[in-house]
Amino acid sequence: MVSQVRRHPLAEQAAELLLARIRAGEWPLGHRLPGETTLAAQLGVGRSTLREAVRILAGKGVLASRQGAGVFVTACDVPEDWDIVLRRATIAAVVEARIAIEAEAAALAAHRRTPADLRSIRRALAARAGADGSVAELVDADTAFHRTVIVAAHNDVLTQLFDTFLPRLRFAMIDMLDLRPLPSSAEDHAAHERLTAAIAARDPGAAARHSRTHLLAIKEAFT
């Protein structure tokens, strides 16, 4: 069993011990923690200190208090900061995550796009075609196009997820294209035209398929 808390600050120490026991699998995901009296005695702290420890872990997404039901495990560890995760990620891992986000977003865009959305997508497509300057300019124009597709899905969660990837994605793509240009820029742009056409035609299956095929080609080109 984990040793009792011996130093201040007690609440932070108690939170660390609770987290260690959760990581060790003592309380699985969705499991209810023992009652306050039992748990406070196990940790060697008062009930007010235990409540503060629970609040600390609740703030980190590990625990959740349910009125009248108790305290439950909602995550088995403290999630890492997105910036740290993305800095460590390979370009292949980032592209795989993009596929998961963008293929679904493309299908939703085909369902939900408005005339204004379609105009934005087509403007971004034209701007992408006209980006004949630096690699950074092409990457920025390409990213702007993909973002218009995601915005057309009208799902704020998907948009925010994509925006989280942008800095890591931008730098990685610039570095990769500087070293190894895409085999066929004409075919790459044609893939974007096919995606736009599927969204315009309100064909979710084709939109998702074109999005996935395009991103898989990028992954294969850089791995």
Rank of each mutant, 00 (worst) to 15 (best):
V157E: 09
E12C: 14
D203W: 02
L125V: 00
A127E: 12
P181D: 01
P34D: 06
Q42G: 09
R112G: 00
E26G: 02
A14N: 02
V139Y: 00
I218H: 07
D163R: 07
A110D: 00
H210S: 07
V157Y: 11
A221M: 02
A40F: 02
A208C: 09
S120Q: 05
L158Q: 09
P34H: 03
D188W: 02
D83H: 15
L182S: 00
R202F: 04
R168K: 05
S48W: 15
A11T: 12
E137G: 07
A40H: 02
V139K: 02
R6T: 07
H210N: 07
R55S: 13
A152M: 03
L10A: 08
A217L: 03
V149S: 05
A89W: 11
H214D: 06
A24C: 11
D77E: 08
P79Y: 01
Q4I: 11
A93Q: 10
G30P: 11
A93M: 08
K219C: 15
T196E: 10
A116K: 10
G133P: 11
D77M: 14
G205E: 13
P167S: 06
D117C: 10
A191R: 09
Q4T: 15
R194Y: 12
L17G: 03
Q42I: 06
A200L: 05
A89D: 15
R6E: 08
D140N: 15
